[in-house]
Amino acid sequence: MIDPAPSAAALEVARLAKSFDGEAILRDVSFSLGRGELLVLRGESGTGKSVLLKCITRLIEPDAGMVCIFGTDAATLDAVEVRRRVLLVGQVPTLYEGTVRQNLEYPFSFKSNQHLPLPDGPSLLSMVGLSADLLDRPAAPLSVGQQQRLCIARALGLDPGILLFDEPTAALDPAAKVVVEETILRLNRESGRSILMVTHDVEQVRRMGARTLVLARGMVKETEGDAG
């Protein structure tokens, strides 16, 4: 893909607003995610973190504001195309019936992904610290931590420009939490992916050691400084 604006930020969110039944969830959200940056967005439960990620990926259409992906206004793109460029990994590991391999290949059954080469299962699994031996085993009996890493591997198979993580460790035990955090840090460090991760966990924010924004009352309120 030709990058239309090589100097633009990976993601630029400007004055984004969204209300449900008259209640403003997002009021005026603006921030940017640099190329190759890991950005953490912290917010208490119910502050609209998930809604923000869904507005960015156009799973939910925002009421106002603009989202630019590598310099292109997301509103000018087809919603499916937006989601191919900005991939959201959810809070609860969500897998489909079948083996680990079938789950990795599942997105390639969709028309929008059919032109892409099928993913290299073993290397995807190794990127998230899973053994290639799992490939032909059913996905359902994996531990929740392994399932979440499989979800990340599945997302990586589509080679998205930007990865969004919606509380990726919320459903995990402490040990699995650390493994997933390390996987995200490694992805950012080694493959230079632009990553936006949202969390409510202050300790996790500290462990990630990345630039952090806080979402409160529908606005990105403060920057807690670069931790780099």
């Binding site: 990926t57 799973l59 499916v80 989601r83 191919r84 991939l87 959201l88 990994v89 959810g90 609860v92 969500t94 489909y96 599942y106 997105p107 059954s109 969709f110 028309k111 929008s112 992904n113 979800c151 599945r154 997302a155 589509l158």
Partner: peptide, 16 residues
């Protein structure tokens, strides 16, 4: 619901 949302996130159209 989550499976539908995940499929959409992975590039599926609504009908897919």
């Amino acid at each position: 619901r989550l499976r539908v949302e995940t499929a959409l996130s992975l590039g599926a159209t609504w009908s897919e």
